[in-house]
Design a protein around this nucleic acid. Structure first.
Lengths: 79, 79
DNA sequence: CAACTTTCCCCGGCATACAGGGAAAAGCGC
DNA sequence: GCGCTTTTCCCTGTATGCCGGGGAAAGTTG
């Protein structure tokens, strides 16, 4: 894929002029979690990653070869 | 924007002809985790979500308004 | 250099995600 | 109806993610 979420988080945080502590508070997580997230730790809870991404206005997207077929089926089912 | 990872996982798993148990084994996680993942549980470890997505050939992508600026900066720094 | 902010990295303790077993219910073909 | 497979949902022990505090190191500003 692209860069790790770690890099992206650091970049967005700094662009927002936030310290790790400030980001943590806005996201409602502990300061250590932000630190670990930025270190690329993968054993974090999805919930907490999402909280941080939300504050930084970053969205998560899924990609797969079957994705288009999925969209077609849904559109089909719903009209 | 898109569907939850839960829906996507179910869809891809069924398309692969796998049972929850089989997917769990391929991903190296417990069967209950697959069950919870498909139920949309957000308190799972990112690591485990990624393991399952990998088996199903689903990639994660990040999107943000600042993303382009990020890419430019990187390209700039590297070449 | 001094003063201040931020980041790094440790710890102690609590909360909870996880694996795996089991059993009832649901689905599916015959 | 009867089998067989799969899914749903419970339980329990263990592992570990998380928080808050703190202090050293690194960075920033003057």
């Amino acid at each position: 894929m692209q860069q790790s979420f770690a890099e992206i988080i650091v970049f967005h945080r700094k662009r927002s002029g936030l310290s790790q502590q400030a980001l943590a508070e806005l996201a409602g997580v502990g300061k250590n979690l932000v630190y670990e997230l930025e270190g690329g730790k993968q054993t974090v809870r999805l919930e907490n990653l999402l909280k941080v991404l939300r504050v930084l206005n970053i969205e998560l997207d899924f990609k797969s070869p079957l994705r288009e077929a999925y969209m077609r089926e849904r559109a089909d089912a719903q009209g």
